[in-house]
């Protein structure tokens, strides 16, 4: 099966004073549709950089990135925006919903943005119901609980029918039980819609829910478990 995400020999370094600071060094990764991958690692290990490169927010110093069969490397900023719009679904550390839109409007916004490229026939109502958010449809984020907000954020990430879901510490702002529930929901949707997903986390308690675990340490990526 075609890979949803392919990173080939990715390196990223920053100029740091006189020397160079290697954040990522020669990293490769392949994720297939329907596969749920976790990346763990201590803080400062480059997890954010890794996620930004995978999410077309940052260009690598070296190596190539393929999302849904499209090579990102040589694209300009405008093209990267289009890639993010059509092929990538983000779940951020804190929900980052727009405060002035209701749960349903958060989803339809993404849907409207993708209206013209023939993607996404998902219905916002179905998506909300699927995540147990039917009653929240007309609520603003300020009126929702932390878990509800993060679930809306999950729903939003799926609304553009992306090739890959990227989750940045989705449990960080939630307590243990709610955090687990959120990751369970991500897993459920990933399997249901056959999407590839990468979750960056240091919450060890949810690692049993993913298919593959990688550890990011000393600028390198190592496969830990293949569950």
């Amino acid at each position: 099966m075609k890979n949803a995400l392919e990173l080939n020999n990715i390196s990223k370094s920053y100029q740091d004073g006189e020397g160079e600071n290697n954040i990522l060094n020669n990293i490769s990764l392949e994720v297939k549709p329907g596969e749920f991958v976790a990346i763990v690692g201590p803080s400062g290990s480059g997890k954010s950089t890794f996620l930004s490169i995978s999410g077309a927010l940052l260009s690598p110093s070296d190596g190539s990135v393929m999302v849904g069969g499209t090579e990102l490397g040589k694209k300009n900023k405008k093209k990267l925006v289009k890639i993010r719009r059509e092929k990538i679904g983000f779940i951020f550390q804190s929900h980052h919903l727009l405060p002035f839109l209701t749960a349903k409007e958060q989803l339809t916004l993404v849907q409207k943005m993708n209206k013209n490229n023939g993607k996404s026939d998902l219905r916002a109502e179905d998506m909300l119901a699927d995540l147990g958010l039917a009653e929240c449809a007309d609520k603003f984020p300020a009126k929702m609980s932390g878990g509800e907000k993060q679930r809306v954020a999950i729903a939003r990430a799926f609304m553009n029918d992306p090739d890959i879901i990227l989750a940045d510490e989705p449990t960080a702002s939630l307590d243990g039980a709610r955090g687990r529930q959120v990751v369970e929901l991500i897993k459920k949707e990933v399997k249901k819609h056959q999407k590839a997903a990468i979750m960056v986390t240091h919450d060890e308690r949810v690692l049993d829910l993913v298919d593959v675990i990688y550890r990011l340490e000393n600028a390198g990526l190592k496969k830990v478990v293949n569950q």
């Binding site: 999410g55 927010l57 405008k78 925006v81 289009k82 890639i83 993010r84 719009r85 059509e86 990538i88 983000f90 951020f92 980052h96 727009l98 405060p99 993404v110 943005m113 939003r156 553009n160």
Partner: peptide, 16 residues
């Protein structure tokens, strides 16, 4: 600023 960052991350064009 953060809110605009989110809009950009989810692929909203600068023109929009």
């Amino acid at each position: 600023q953060k809110q605009f960052g989110v809009l950009k991350a989810i692929g909203m064009k600068m023109s929009e």
